[in-house]
Nucleic acid binder design. Sequence first.
DNA 1: GCTCTGCCTAGAGGA
Length: 1000
Amino acid sequence: MEQLNELELLMEKSFGEEAAAPEELFQKKKEASFPKTILSHGMDNRYLVLAVNTVQNKEGNYEKHLIITASQSLDYKEQCILRSDSSNPATRQMLIGTVLHEVFQKAISSKSFTPEKLQELSCQIVQEIKHLKEMYRLNLNPDEVKQEVEEYLPSFSKWAGDFMHQGTSTDFPQMQLSLPSDGSSNNPTRNIEVINSLDIEESIWSPRFGLKGKIDVTVGVKIHQGSKTKYKIMPLELKTGKESNSIEHRSQVVLYTLLSQERRADPDAGLLLYLKTGQMYPVPANHLDKRELLKLRNQMAFFLLHRISKSPGKEKTQLTFLPQITEEEKTCKYCSQVGNCALYSRAVEQQMDENSVPVVMLSKIQEETCHLKLTHLEYFSLWYLMLTLESQSKDNRKNHQNIWLKPASEMEESGNCIGNLIRTEHVKRVCGGQYLHHFQRKNGSMPVTNLMAGDRIILSGEERTLFALSRGYVKEINMTTVTCLLDRNLSVLAESTLFRIDQEEKNCDIDTPLGNLSKLMENTNASKKLRDLIIDFREPQFIPYLSSVLPRDAKDTVANILKGLNKPQRQAMKKVLLSKDYTLIVGMPGTGKTTTICTLVRILYACGFSVLLTSFTHSAVDNILLKLAKFQIGFLRLGQTQKVHPDIQKFTEEEICRSKSIKCLALLKELYNCQLIVATTCMGISHPIFSHRTFDFCIVDEASQISQPVCLGPLFFAQRFVLVGDHQQLPPLVLNPEASALGMSESLFKRLEKNQNAVVQLTVQYRMNSKIMSLSNKLTYDGKLECGSDKVANAVINLPHFKDVKLELEFYADYSDNPWLIGVFEPNNPVCFLNTEKVPAPEQVEKGGVSNITEAKLIVFLTSVFIKAGCNPSDIGIIAPYRQQLKIINDLLEHSSVKMVEVNTVDKYQGRDKRIILVSFVRSNKDGTLGELLKDWRRLNVAITRAKHKLILLGCVSSLKRYPPLEKLFCYLNTEKLIIDLPSREHESLCNILGDFQRG
DNA sequence: GCTCTGCCTAGAGGA
């Protein structure tokens, strides 16, 4: 039964039929196995396999069903299901290994290895939520895990008794250890004494060797040789598996000695401790070994660095070949990456002949990939290439080298670093692996900085040797102190240590989308269905009659909920309920997407369906949940509590565990299984809940803004899915131009829209009045948008003091012959474009971005007038495509003491609205320079669909009409006579008025 | 040419 260890083991009582084994053979086996076997609980238990059946399960995966018995009389049998779970490489041994590491680390830190202490520690650690979560994932019984952990404990005590007792040098175990620094000395026998633990999980990055890692235990060791004693600080590596003292294990220790040199003197050697037996081996770090390991490291790095190449002559970028596939079948047999390796080889390298791949491996590749069509392989390689390109794009590769190379004082100028910090107050342990630290500037106050609460950071010492001590995030920052949650406790360092904090680079997560892509290619029913639908565009199917899906007792409730909806919304609900595969809901601007999703969830809930609710961002997920919470519908919100909306935090796993003080697996299971509705972001799908639960429906909001491999993630866990979005609004963000050209910004929503029978459009909108709505109807929606009611259609802005303001303005200047001001502020003119051509208002291009100071001044003037006329500042929104312009506008507003007016980019305003929107288009030049941003008609569509009652557009018509989308807009505005020219030098007179305004 | 959001992510063991 040895080989069962690598498989997920599931025991179920069963008295099912079994295939009979030949009687003779069976008798022999029975006699051979039973007499010697101890039939008890625990690790050494033995069973006899009576029959084996291979069965395909619901998900299409193959399982082995064994009938086994533990009794000689054969009257008590059990069924044992063996599942090879390739998508989930975590195993029981890994979990037990992790727990044992923690127990040992806690014991050595507290310098106590008494059986009582060890017992207490294992009890505590096994009960920690993070481990219970893994037990849930792996279907393990906590008692069994605890029992298995406890079997190691006597060896812990034995080890401590051998190496850590009080005594003379010769009392310690003798070991063969020749330290490289001793030269070729004669006698390699030493007595080894472990004094203490100096650090646990010490995290070291070594730019010098190009390595990083965490050292299990950093120990102080005395090496006795005769009367001589040497003191060394060494890495101690713990192993819980078989005592192999293998080349792999020893090499790992050698690498740790290299890391260790970044912080202190060369340890010359490290220690390898097998916790099963308490046996410890010294590992000398010989020069030649180090050199060979670094050579291997460099070969690996080479392949990782050159994942793509441009073929000579051609402009086309391609994925490069991976290192040659090994010829050893055995190595492949136990590799967790065989599937991916075969897939890459077949799809990317297209290696299908004996010249490029070892013959024995060809069949392996064939076996792993034969279920895939050419279209699937092409989809895989294209997305693999695009994801790789994107992950290598400039913004994602801001490397860590500055933290290492540049002093903090220099880095502070960028605003991403704070140096010269000392620790104040005590370090507070918040929970396992999170420590609250307070820092203060050693002399003086904090520098000007971009760092904000919630930012991920890297903490280093000012000294180079203390590079990247810990990672974490900023909890709070003010003029005098920074509070950080760090993954390590820094109180082990001297109090006078000077620290620096650097903002962590954004490393784009390529693992999740790649993992999803790989999963899409798996030979399971769920993946096959998604491949059919997504790659091969199989037509989505629908059930003809609602009666077959609606439970009778839910009909009234559903009918009631439907009452509150408009016609297209009801159609959407119906379509979803009838769907067997998927539905796409197009939510045009202002059509109540969030309300529609909320209603959809309520209906599905009433029917007893389970729903997985997701979106790319936390805020989009919470928007729906905030509405849902009002209807007394229960749900579980997964994800980090600190990222969740404060009103939703009480629904997070962490909060529920805390408030109900959940400390056992049974309660955790109940928590995971009790809600029909589970909500999380698309990236949150590695949660253990998804290794057991599937859902009737998966709803993805903002789907038109999510890239395909990310959007795919949650879809694996549901029978059918609903994508909600609008591809006429902004697409997924892609940084790399080549990836973008290859089609990376096409969302799954856009791709599947080809199947029109799956699409429902929400066309009735409740945001814009009819004049504002007409713009995007002409520009993008072909007149499909309609107002929800006359009230919506005719709504205008209310400016109670406008008459007074008008009088005041006329006091300064005569506007009778150029009444543009009235044109702008008149509530019955909901749309106008102010042309700055004659002013003029030229743009400024700097390295930080594009801006337009004249436009900014005009915008601020208009805003001030709206407020003076009685408009609530929080009803006004200012939009510009460029960050630099926002900065200038914000500065001017602050100068004019205008508060509560929200200034943001077009991209950030997607999904939001305001009563009044002012748009500054910024671009204005004579040389014809065009930026990329305004070329995208979807960005323009978003910009002009945010205002409810009044939309003021500001820019230079002659420059802007070079952009096709804007040209189309001007064409319409012209026919409606909505473009107003500003007179020459108008901004100067207005600025004077503004000054008087504020004084008055 | 200037738009930016998700991820706790190194190592826990197998042979």
